[in-house]
């Protein structure tokens, strides 16, 4: 039985938490298959503590490729390295997060090694009789779920929707094997060049990474009113989301857009305020774990998805809510002193 591999994401000298979510996924699969679980980490100046963190959180092995050329993501060089690793060690399963990196790298690699790849999975399981990976994913804007397998080729590859699983927790005293690989310069020849990263200051927390998203729709009324959405998001340590109508009106920039032509997200909590719940919007957020909707219209579609629905004016409700959260936090803080 080949190994179960998860691709860790290492950006700007830091492991992202999706790496640990993938380990959690990988753990249950590896257990069922009685196979070793390994993480792959590609980057530059990778810290030992990060490698150990992967082991503490469940990896039996960590394959490390540390090279100046891997400092920033370029699909060509990352793909070449990953293909080398796959060809040498022949894992059974290869999982990556459905982030901009995973969704670029994995299809580029799957084509070269002629194997199947399933996009943006929310459920992974093992077929009892065959040991095949069963990969379930939403399609057609979340209107259907499809379960897909890769019966005849290996590895079985999937990208996994961020936040569709909790991160694996570290366990004390776990040990694992670290395999360091080096490749020569020809591996890193690319026809593209990384220039720079420009941080989007309007996104304190980005919607893809957020545990909590507070999203506003056209019902917010005008650009200035969005301050109250921003405020609530900040207070909850979450990100600000927006419907397309809001982005088209210029009240928020495109990176905030949730839905069919924006981002697909699965936070632990999604608060939709002044959003009607058009299918194109729902397509991007219906797998959220908890949904609170606030809308003036009792018949708004969004209420069909909501765990808690408030029929009312968001401009009345949110300021009071914000005050209450402030008070609550203050009380908690002083109680803890």
């Amino acid at each position: 039985m080949g190994e179960v591999w998860t691709l860790a994401e290492y950006r700007f000298g830091k492991l992202s938490s999706v790496s640990f979510e993938l380990l959690n996924r990988g753990k249950s699969l590896a257990q069922k298959l009685n196979a070793p679980l390994a993480s792959i980490i590609l980057g530059f100046a990778i810290k030992d503590e990060d490698i150990n963190e992967l082991i503490a959180r469940g990896a039996d092995k960590v394959y490390v490729v540390d090279d100046k050329n891997l400092e920033n993501f370029l699909v060509e060089s990352y793909a070449k390295v990953l293909i080398e690793l796959v060809n040498e060690y022949k894992p059974d399963i290869l999982l990556a997060a459905a982030t901009t990196t995973g969704r670029t790298l994995m299809p580029y690699v799957a084509v070269r090694i002629r194997t199947g790849l399933t996009a943006d999975c929310t459920v992974l399981d093992v077929e009892d009789e065959t040991g095949n990976l069963l990969q379930t994913r939403p399609a057609i804007g979340g209107n259907i779920l499809a379960t897909i397998k890769t019966p005849n080729t290996r590895p079985q590859m999937a990208t996994v929707r961020p936040h569709s699983m909790k991160p694996a927790l570290p366990e004390k005293g776990r040990s694992g094997e670290v395999i360091r690989k080096k490749y020569d310069d020809s591996t890193f020849k690319t026809k593209s060049k990384y220039l720079r990263f420009i941080k989007d200051e309007s996104q304190q927390v980005t919607v893809q990474d957020a545990k909590i998203i507070v999203a506003g729709g056209k019902g917010v009324g005008k650009a200035e009113n969005f301050a109250i959405i921003d405020k609530l998001a900040e207070l909850l340590g979450g990100a600000v989301g927006a419907s397309r109508d809001v982005v088209d009106r210029g009240w928020k920039s495109y990176p905030h857009q949730i839905g069919l032509s924006g981002k697909t997200v699965s936070p632990a909590l999604y608060i939709a305020a002044g959003i009607s719940g058009a299918v194109q919007h729902i397509a991007g957020m219906q797998t959220s774990e908890n949904i609170i909707a606030i809308n003036k219209d009792p018949d708004a579609q969004i209420f069909h998805l909501a765990d808690l629905g408030i029929v009312g004016d968001l401009n009345e409700i949110l300021p009071i809510l914000i005050d209450r959260i402030y008070d609550y936090k203050k009380r908690e803080a002083s109680a803890n002193v």
Binding site: R11, N72, F73, L74, T99, T100, T101, K191, S192, K193, Y194, L195, R196, F197, I198, K199, D200, Q203, T206, Q208, D209, Y254, P255
Partner: peptide
Amino acid sequence: LVEGGYEEIEMT
């Protein structure tokens, strides 16, 4: 457009 901002790259 990537997580947290933008990246610039150049391709031949």
